[in-house]
Simulated scan of single mutants.
Amino acid sequence: MTDFQTIGTLCDRRLISEEEVDIAVEGFLSGSEASVFLFRAGYRLNLVKAVRSHPGAQEFVGRPNVGTGLKRPFVRAAILQARPIPQPDD
């Protein structure tokens, strides 16, 4: 069964913590994380795809003259609105 919940919905349900979202945001902004972020609850999210799919985030992240402080809320919004993929059970 496909799960159409967003990261924000999963946070509201306390399946994903705000701290994990913060780590994903910082990982994307630093460029040090792999493009796929794995949440402890068994969800994965392609951070690059999430940001590219969000019009505001895509626009701000692509601007060279915009600092990280202005990019952060857009990247966070993109991640919260994205739909992660549940990890398959082993």
Rank of each mutant, 00 (worst) to 15 (best):
I23Y: 08
L15F: 11
R63S: 01
G8C: 07
E20L: 03
D90V: 14
V36I: 15
A34K: 10
P64E: 15
G56P: 05
L45E: 03
A78V: 02
L70E: 10
S30R: 14
Y43G: 01
I16S: 01
T2Q: 03
P86Q: 12
T9K: 06
M1Y: 11
Q5E: 07
G42V: 06
L45H: 03
G27D: 02
T9D: 14
T9F: 07
D3G: 04
V75S: 00
V51F: 00
I79R: 00
N46P: 03
A41C: 11
R44E: 15
K49F: 12
L70N: 07
E20S: 14
F74P: 00
E20P: 03
R13L: 14
F74G: 05
E20M: 06
F39G: 10
R13K: 13
L45P: 02
A57Q: 05
I7D: 04
G62V: 08
D89I: 10
I79D: 00
G8S: 09
R14E: 11
R14M: 10
V66P: 02
R44W: 13
V25G: 02
P86I: 05
R40C: 08
G27R: 04
G31R: 04
V36R: 08
I79T: 01
S35N: 14
Q81E: 15
R76T: 04
G67A: 13
S30Q: 06
V21I: 10
A24V: 01
V48T: 15
T9Q: 15
E26W: 10
E18T: 12
N65S: 11
P88K: 13
F28H: 02
G8T: 05
V25Y: 01
I85N: 10
G31Q: 08
G62H: 09
T68H: 13
L15P: 03
R14F: 06
P64S: 15
V61N: 06
L10G: 02
R52A: 04
I85D: 14
L45I: 03
R40K: 15
A78Q: 00
I85L: 14
V66W: 09
I85Q: 15
I7G: 03
G67Y: 08
A41I: 04
D22N: 09
R72S: 09
V66T: 11
Q5L: 08
V25A: 09
R63F: 04
R83M: 07
L38Y: 09
L10E: 02
V66H: 05
E33D: 14
V21R: 02
V51A: 01
